[in-house]
Design a binder for these strands. Structure first.
Lengths: 386, 386
DNA sequence: TGCACTTTGGCAACAGCGTTGCTTAAGTGG
DNA sequence: CCACTTAAGCAACGCTGTTGCCAAAGTGCA
């Protein structure tokens, strides 16, 4: 593997797996564990235990990673009665990625290392509705400026996060509210052509959720990220991996009906969370907005059995407490009615890490995440070994 | 591989993949395509095209399957200018599985072949609340009686579908409403010990959804199965595979709030779909019940971007039309507000195939599905090759 | 009737994956 | 000083899908 070609993860496209795909899968798995270990590092034997591979296989894989500069030895552990274990660590600076958050009025761009840490940030005013040409020019300028910070190491690609509906698989925008001329525009390919870099496009909420997923302890986690800004949306991480749905339409949380005989929403129907929430925010009644959000969060938790709810978006970030309190109360109430299923207790609510930069950081993760293993949900379930 | 050991699908447990796992993965993939092809069969080259494997690899895999009796040659295609293709078909009778539906007042047991077709059905009255001993005895008796129908071919295992909350991974029941003594009972292991067969336990709605998933054209499908009987629940198939959530809690659809200031539900909260729905059914107003169901279905479609809604359960099966009409109307209304995203049109609604036996058929699928490939959602998405 | 062509599928040799068996490295503890 | 334990590498190996080549079995035109 040389320079920019980091297409691990195999299994892309056709489902059949051959030897290169298998190698890619295991390599990505090991890289993912190295990343999760962070500064502390991991020993080869620990990697073997976590992956289920033999120590010898891990030795070969890590030897390749070291040869490519992606991993390095970093001291030793204290002995436990025998030869002390050699600690391996990810070399974060070996590759970089760019995350681009195109919001309605502002562009945020970050250059991150392999660990997902931002090493440079740029902001610029943006009029998203002004049209493709202007946006592309601004975006290309900012990305080019950031690339200098990579300091020689390859930039793997650019992750782009946008508001409106869009198709992740094709990289095409759909009728963005307030900017109809964007409908059908192949933003991904257009930007890729300008930059000469791979580009991945996704919704802002999905990018943020993907970024937040990297903080979770293990791959098994499921959570919902609720983003309340000028609108209300959600990103869903199920079984450790981002769930986009067949048309990148999953996470349309704002128009969930929670009061079917309620006030009419801009979408034409009644009692949508977004309408209830934003109306309450407009009249300054944040607790009421939080209650509406809480009802939706409870529905989400109940329907998808998720482990955690994270809140973000400008409106929440401006006044976090009332929202945290309101949603916590709704979920506590839910837990009470469910009677505590053993491990019981309410599903925890927290503020999403990253603040205003959460989306841009997550956008970079659109490029990085595939390198570290897809961590999809397992098989539909097999016969228990009786 | 001999007799009962059909543990394909590899990748179970630890995520690291070795050669046996790879072989299992591809074998399951081919078996899945053979099953999907049904009576028509598939040629080796078609299998190669669908899996992305080379024709030679497919030849080796199918040769093994034929040696094991799981596949057979079945005539030839018409020539297209060269040597006519040999058609391969699954041999449905090579293995069997048992599906067990334990409802509150009745037991339904089916013996199915590899294709999932029922070859024998038994029903027996059951008092689920009477206690474990009685239920186990009845279940063991019925399964034993069915096994005779397998006629020498190995029975792979027993899939068991129950109402209440339970844990699929451990096979343990949780506080079933009306039968507190079941709480914590290890039904899977107890039944496996009696029968000497592998047992898989899951919720009735999950089993039904898994069964219905086999009818879908391709692996990519996502749908929600809404089951309205004595209660209201759902089974979610996302990206072609059943989504259970971390604690087998996903699909708790009945207590979704759709009218947060509505009438109080038995669960303690207000405006749950189940309460609204069942109240309407009780007073004979099926259109109103359907409207409530429709609001929930629209929420589901919007949140998870699913392709299809299927309805089932006794209450729906008794009078399908009003429910189909009501839910269709709700989804048509939703599609109108969304403005038709290109391929547009409303998400289709249909009655679940299988009628009263849908759950039992699906229970058998708990055993069969792992043999045919897990078909989980793909990686979180990689950089498009610019 | 014959021959060129196309398509299907198997045989044999091969590269490369993780595994196994064994050896070396580098500590602890009596 | 030596037995013991733990970590990690070397070499040989089994098995995977792949590649190159060839036989089988049709069509279609001369």
């Amino acid at each position: 593997m040389s320079s920019n070609d980091l297409s691990f993860a195999g299994f892309s496209g056709s489902p059949g797996a051959n030897l290169p795909a298998l190698r890619g899968h295991n390599t990505a798995l090991v890289l993912g564990l190295l990343r999760a270990a962070g500064e502390e590092g991991v020993s080869r034997l620990e990697l073997a235990a976590h992956t289920g591979l033999t120590p010898q296989a891990v030795s070969k894989i890590t030897a390749r990673l070291r040869a490519e500069g992606l991993a390095a030895e970093a001291g030793r552990r204290a002995s436990t009665g025998g030869k002390p274990a050699t600690v391996l660590r990810l070399v974060p600076g070996a590759r970089h990625a760019v995350g681009l958050h195109l919001d309605r009025d502002e562009l945020t761009a970050v250059l991150t290392d392999l660990a997902g840490e931002a090493v440079a940030v740029r902001r610029a005013p943006l009029d998203f509705e002004a049209g493709a040409e202007q946006v592309l020019t601004t975006a290309a300028r900012e990305v080019t400026a950031l690339r200098a910070g990579a300091d020689g190491s390859p930039v793997l690609g650019v992750g782009v996060a946008c508001p409106g509906p869009l198709d992740h698989t094709t990289g095409v925008l759909h009728r963005v509210t307030g900017a109809p001329h964007w409908d059908g525009f192949p933003l991904r390919d257009a930007l890729a052509a300008r930059l000469g870099l791979p580009v991945v496009l996704d919704k802002d909420t999905n990018a943020a959720a993907l970024g937040l997923a990297q903080d979770l302890p293990r791959a098994a986690g499921s959570f919902g990220y609720l983003h309340l800004g000028t609108g209300l949306g959600a990103g869903l991480v199920l079984g450790g991996s981002l769930y986009r749905g067949p048309r990148t339409g999953a996470g349309e949380f704002g128009h969930q009906t929670v009061q079917w005989d309620g006030p009419r929403c801009g979408c034409g129907r009644r009692g949508c969370i977004e309408a209830l929430c934003l109306a309450a925010v407009a009249r300054g009644d944040l607790p009421a907005a939080a209650r509406a959000l809480g009802v939706g969060a409870a529905n989400l938790v109940e329907l998808l059995d998720i482990d955690r709810v994270l809140l973000g978006g400008r409106t929440v970030l401006d006044h976090p407490e009332p929202f945290l309190d309101g949603v916590t109360e709704a979920l506590t109430d839910l837990a009470r009615t469910r009677g505590g299923t053993g491990a019981g207790g309410a599903v925890p609510v927290a503020l999403a890490r990253g603040g205003a930069r959460a989306v841009a950081d997550g956008a970079a993760e659109l490029v990085l995440a595939p390198l570290f293993g897809a961590r999809g949900p397992g098989p539909a379930g097999g016969p228990g070994a009786s």
